[in-house]
Design a protein around this nucleic acid. Structure first.
Lengths: 208, 208
DNA sequence: GCACTAATCCTGACAGTGACTAGATAGAGG
DNA sequence: CCTCTATCTAGTCACTGTCAGGATTAGTGC
């Protein structure tokens, strides 16, 4: 009676707990890593009881599915951001997309692993499948722009798609694991030098 | 009194429980995946109490460190096996090494993820670091054989190393996640066709 | 053969986890 | 004012890793 949702402490009903939980979850995820993720820790961080999350995301798997979904949205946006500030040339755009891929992986490594290496998100979930497909479609389009045709109608060109995906994904995953910085001497470079090196590697996938 | 270690049931002292636990752990790992790995399940499978593993591997992290170590040993052996049955040409040998890399990832996906994507193994552990370095050294050597010189003395050649590693690792990780079979139509191919496609992708890393 | 020591393994307990249940609370519509 | 429904809390269960204490066995010196 005394307190309402704006003035004091907290209300019994949060208002938008779902979004708040997702925010808290991201923080917990990047702090503790995916392997130490805990629903209760998320609830605690959101200042809510340990059973509350179940009401918005039935399962912990449901929770992680939702997290992966918003992950893909930001993933695509990170790639687009790179492309907007890059040259219009199709190859430069492809490289920029790959750099955005790596940007995202390094900014949100745990979320990245959740999206690509975890069994827990429900891949048959429609919204998750939709954004995951959208991410793949984007790559196909980037490759198509380089060749000025549709890779889906050309198996050989589809190999370009997979080569580009593989090298970018491999770089991202190895960089997260800390296995590439020393070998590439990335520590000694400024941003543009680093991007040049990575772009060179990325473009090898389509035969330079 | 009635039973001894050879005739009946089991002895109090197992004899070589450490090895037995590692075997059981691998089975559990590949059955349930790394995310559902449980010390107690391993102990149960080995027919031993839940506290027994702690005596051979202080921690669960210690356990996973040991698992990752034997993983790297078999990882290298899998690559060598591919190379033995391949042409002696340095490029063919490099491709074969990559195919072995992928072989291992598909045979033991959970172990592969443990080795490359998990935070739990103790990377400062000497035996683990040694085999991990050996695996990397092997790759450096394979690239060196192609160029007939030592990549460690040439930053540009070191980029070949990372490009080859990235594309192979990316392929392996994406294949585990089931994201590449359809795009590459691998399902419609026999083994040698499949290997040819993958070898083509791998060799793009060093400029074909 | 015998005792002593160290290694091995078991049992029981603890806090933390996800999932489930019943109940308390608050907002919306009549 | 009253009811309905979504939201959230609190308590419980089985499971997890870790730890401490005790039981059993193997190995060693005598």
């Amino acid at each position: 009676m005394a307190r309402n949702q704006s003035t004091d402490k907290k209300a019994y009903h949060h208002g938008d707990l779902r979004a708040e939980l997702l925010r808290a979850a991201e923080a917990v995820l990047e702090e503790n890593g995916i392997e130490a993720f805990s629903l209760r820790a998320v609830a605690k961080r959101a200042g809510v009881s340990h059973g509350a999350p179940a009401h918005h995301f039935t399962d912990v798997n449901g929770f992680l599915t939702a997290l992966a979904t918003i992950g893909y949205e930001r993933f695509i946006e990170t790639q687009n951001a790179r492309q907007r500030s890059a040259d219009a040339d199709p190859r430069a755009q492809l490289a920029a997309s790959g750099l955005g891929y790596i940007d995202f992986a390094l900014e949100s490594p745990a979320l990245f692993q959740l999206m690509f290496s975890s069994q827990k998100p429900d891949k048959s979930d429609k919204s998750l499948a939709a954004v995951a497909d959208a991410a793949f479609d984007k790559l196909v389009q980037d490759i198509g722009n380089v060749h000025n045709s549709n890779p889906r109608e050309n198996p050989a060109m589809m190999r370009d798609v997979m080569a580009a995906w593989a090298i970018v994904h491999g770089l991202a995953d190895l960089m997260i694991a800390g296995r590439t910085v020393r070998a590439l001497q990335l520590g000694d470079m400024n941003d543009s030098e680093r991007d040049d090196v990575l772009s060179d590697l990325i473009l090898r996938s389509i035969g330079k």
